[in-house]
Amino acid sequence: MMPDLGKYATEVLSAYVVSLALIVVLVLISWRQSQVVRARLREVERRRDPDG
């Protein structure tokens, strides 16, 4: 399964780990912000217009 990375295994793996971690963090932060703002907006809109 795991390819033989030879003597550069640390470098290749760390590059992938660092990059994927950064991407995952960015996606999670963006997602979290989106959820928070959406929930707050929904709440304020409900307060403004209780029937809708």
Partner: peptide, 11 residues
């Protein structure tokens, strides 16, 4: 470059 070429797919 050995296996380090694999970094190209991110870099």
């Amino acid at each position: 470059q050995g296996s380090t070429v694999k970094i190209i797919y991110l870099h």
